[in-house]
Write a protein that binds this DNA or RNA. Structure first.
Lengths: 218, 218
DNA sequence: CGATCTGAGATTGTATACATATGATGGTAG
DNA sequence: CTACCATCATATGTATACAATCTCAGATCG
């Protein structure tokens, strides 16, 4: 944390993503400034940034609240993510540096090892490794504009913790998608990579939405 | 303008979009606060918002500059826009209210009337009408998340003024795309609407990129 | 002569005080 | 008892003062 505004931003952001601040919860400037031990100024800046990213809903003169995501919202988020991230996979297939491929293989190995356990902790670990894999692929796509848009449809509460909702079968298939994706990238086949990524994201969408229908709580 | 921060934001934003503040130009907080007659606080807020939208590049402790867009950036912007806006067109084909269709017809009429003149002023007028048409279609898509992402690939300098670069032939074809799009929406054919929108955006991309290669100045 | 250090000026980052808007409370009129 | 309005408390919006950081010119050293 180099400055107060950045620190407040990161702390608030992770609190929203991991669910420790719930949707609809109020973000009072004074309350937060006391909590972080800084003045309202950097707090305001952090809240405005989160508002621009869509994690927070802001009403003039009426303060900010954590955004909430309806079933419909999440469905659209996954549809958009499928389009953006499949484009990224296509770019990556053409641009990826071969040295990166073993690293992706290794991430698949580690995810599959964790997947055998299926403990809450291992599922969270898979979520981290999954984010790292997707991040490396999008970095290989080397598109700054894509990189700036993707967080809005990737870094969303529930979505970042979605692996907890997988069954052993759907988790195994998801691991398979990763292997397919790496194979497509290795072969430089943009269409295959895009199609695989699209399938992967849409399958994830269904896992999340079905779990939400079964358990209307979060 | 209800408050100072909003006013500064809108003024800066339109100044960047219409080119009166050029890429790489410095945005000094004190200078702008004097210029707008408000304190630095709302100026800072406006600059941070523009930074989140990608119109401004911000470096900690070193201030903000207007972003610049390379040929590669613009190419990626149009590729992403084609994907997002074609998705929006598909949604709109399924969700549009029939009462809106005559309004779209009328916008096409007015654009074609302006297109016959081909004066600088009429081309700017077409740009406005075009933005209105695309905006109505995206509104019909009724996807808040899509609506929040699209500005990043639509409201970009050069892009918003691109009609000035059209030849009479490419302009006529662009007007034709609009007619096709409205026909697809009227028929409720999502795939047709998406495909038409995609073609429309990719054609616009080529017009802009070819013009930029011919005239490396803006 | 070139590289590095130093310090003044200028700019951004943060804290705090004041201004304004919102929402709740309680009292009054109907 | 309900509806409305005035008033006050609280939160946000803005201005300003102070602190930290960066820039750049000029001096010093190798």
């Amino acid at each position: 944390m180099t400055n107060a505004a950045e620190g407040a931003y990161e702390a608030l952001r992770s609190a929203i993503l991991n669910g420790s601040i719930r949707p609809r919860e109020r973000l009072g400037e004074m309350e937060l400034s006391q909590q972080f031990g800084v003045s309202r100024t950097p707090i305001r800046e952090a809240i405005r940034r989160l508002s621009a990213e869509g994690l927070v809903v802001f009403q003039p003169n009426r303060g900010a609240r954590v955004a909430e995501w309806s079933l419909t919202d999440l469905q659209e988020i996954y549809e958009i993510r499928a389009r953006l991230e499949s484009y990224g996979a296509a770019l990556a297939a053409k641009r990826i540096e071969p040295e990166l491929l073993p690293k992706l293989d290794e991430l698949c190995d580690r995810m599959e090892a964790e997947a055998e356990r299926m403990t809450p902790h291992s599922l969270d670990r898979i979520a981290d490794l999954n984010a790292e894999l997707h991040g490396l692929v999008m970095k290989a796509a080397a598109s700054p504009r894509l990189a700036s848009l993707l967080p809005a449809v990737v870094e969303v509460p529930l979505v970042v913790r979605a692996f907890r909702l997988y069954t052993p079968e759907s988790l195994a298939r998801s691991m398979g998608h990763h292997r397919d994706l790496v194979a497509a990238l290795r072969s430089g086949d943009a269409e295959w990579a895009a199609s695989t990524m699209r399938s992967h994201v849409l399958a994830a969408r269904t896992v999340l939405l079905e779990a939400m229908v079964a358990r209307p709580d979060l």
